[in-house]
Design a protein around this nucleic acid. Structure first.
Length: 436
RNA sequence: GGAAGGGUGGCCGAGUGGUUUAAGGCAACAGUCUUGAAAACUGUCGUGGAUGAAAGUCCACCGUGAGUUCGAAUCUCACCCCUUCCGCCA
């Protein structure tokens, strides 16, 4: 959420930001409620002060004074019982508006209503030419017996898959490769230097986080629409849609020491998404599924370091995708397309020859203090001041890069060449994935 | 899942209805002493909110939420978490 003081002082800018991001937020109503809220808070505080005063007097009073004072106490209580529900009502509406307001976007974010206004800021790699008609990954998956959607549909429903054989080993190889980069301070330092970034080379700490989350914590992450999450009602838990959800909330209600920062985590988890409202979109294969594995980066920094941190994280993502030898483009996501908590969203889209398109494989979200304010994750600076941390969250690898590998590395004979960088992470160091 | 015990400030810990809403200790920070350090002594030492130029004043917070009461860290109920034992289990 945004700081109410900021909204008070910058109402017009906040309104403009909501419009740019295609979100309807009644800022005028919020400001009225804000004033009303403070008025009522003051009234309640004054009544409480009176209550405390009477309580102290009762203790010292003689027995004949006592009866009178207790009567006074009851009067104050009556007034409190009228004022407090009023405050609660105002508070509830105030919060519902405040929580719905998106974060302020960065200056370099393109303005526009939808994805057509996203800006490609960099293209890397030559689009491969095939002397045969390249297939889509789901065709290759079925032919090489790597993806079984038919049986998965029988057992679990649509948008589920059995991944099999070398594709499973390829997925683990991807993750292992990413871990080998993210936990190595030397490699991280090289990436930072190559991109002229003055950031710490502190390695990422590997984490296997919980995949279930309390709804109230999820709410404080202000991330996925609840409609998009699976919920286990009997146990009052939701399945996470990304490791971001449990990684980002890890330090909720804590005050960290500035010396500990940056805290960099890399978490592996299965992600669960209902994909409500995306019927008929990307129905085949593993591009858009209810369940997939993802390696996620999450970082907590001081406010003045968070933008460089995002640039560093994007550089890491480029290093990872680039090492696979597949063409990609870096895209600056526009206001109408970016996530609600994001200050700045950069995606990496990877070339998929079967579809003849770039498709999103990585995303990087600079969130600033938007989540930290709700989560109450703070740090104490060297001069003793307590401030909200800034957060960044980004994909290292998910299942999607496997689509890019399958389609870019497919051969005329139907086999798939294994990218050189992944070979050593696969048992048997195979050169090709072939039909068995 | 069953039984018992517990959750108090950065940490330890006293407090079981009203003596400032938190004793005492540790840690931390500053100062005195010292050539320097240690020790000792003195002082400071939670978070958020309201108001104010500031000093300050006021309010809230003792796992979370509700309740009883003129008054709750303290009593009641629900939930969450931790510890120990039993059961089940990869």
């Amino acid at each position: 959420m945004l700081d109410i003081k900021f909204i008070r002082e910058n109402a017009e800018t906040v309104k403009k930001n909501c419009e740019d991001r295609k979100m309807k937020c009644d800022i005028d109503r919020l400001l009225i409620l804000d004033e009303k809220r403070r008025e009522l808070m003051l009234a309640v505080e004054e009544l409480n002060a009176e209550k405390n005063k009477i309580n102290n007097q009762i203790q010292k009073a003689s027995s004949e004074e006592k009866g009178k004072l207790i009567e006074q106490g009851k009067e104050v209580k009556d007034k409190l019982e009228k004022t407090e529900p009023e405050l609660e009502k105002v508070n509830a509406e105030y919060k519902s508006i405040l929580y719905a307001i998106p974060n302020m976007h960065s200056e370099d974010t393109p303005i526009g209503p939808d994805e057509s206004c996203n800006e490609v800021i960099k293209k890397v790699g030559e689009i491969p030419k095939f002397d045969f008609q390249p297939k889509e990954h789901w065709e290759l998956g079925a032919e090489l017996d790597l993806i079984d959607s038919v049986r998965a549909a029988k057992v679990s429903g649509s948008r589920f898959n059995y991944l099999k054989g070398d594709l499973v080993l390829l997925e683990f190889a991807l993750m292992q490769f990413a871990f080998s980069v993210l936990t190595d301070a030397k490699i991280l330092k090289e990436i930072a230097e190559k991109n002229n970034l003055k950031v710490s080379a502190k390695p990422f700490i590997p984490v296997l986080p919980p995949v279930m989350i309390r709804p109230e914590i999820m709410n404080r992450m202000a991330r996925l629409d609840p409609e998009e999450m699976y919920s286990l009602e009997r146990d009052n838990l939701n399945l996470i849609g990304s490791a971001e959800h449990t990684l980002g909330a890890m330090y909720a209600d804590e005050i960290l020491d500035a010396k500990e920062l940056p805290i960099r985590l890399v978490g592996f988890s299965t992600a669960f998404r209902r994909e409500a409202g995306s019927y008929n979109k990307d129905m085949k294969g593993i591009l858009r599924v209810h369940q997939f594995n993802k390696l996620e980066m999450e970082s907590f920094t001081e406010p003045d370091k968070s933008l460089d941190e995002q640039n560093f994280i994007v550089a890491i993502q480029e290093h990872l995708i680039g090492a696979l030898g597949v063409p990609y483009q870096v895209v600056s996501i526009c206001t109408g397309d970016m996530g609600k908590p994001d200050v700045r969203q950069i995606d990496i889209e990877t070339w998929m020859p079967g579809q003849n398109k770039y498709r999103e494989t990585n995303t990087s979200d600079l969130i600033g203090d938007f989540q930290a304010r709700r989560l109450n994750t703070r740090f104490r600076s060297d001069d003793g001041k307590v401030e909200y941390v800034h957060m960044n969250d980004a994909t290292a690898f998910s299942g999607r890069p496997m689509i890019a590998i399958m389609e870019n590395y497919q051969q005329a004979d139907g086999s798939i060449k294994v990218p050189k960088v992944l070979k050593k992470f696969m048992p048997g160091n195979p050169d090709f994935i072939v039909k068995k």
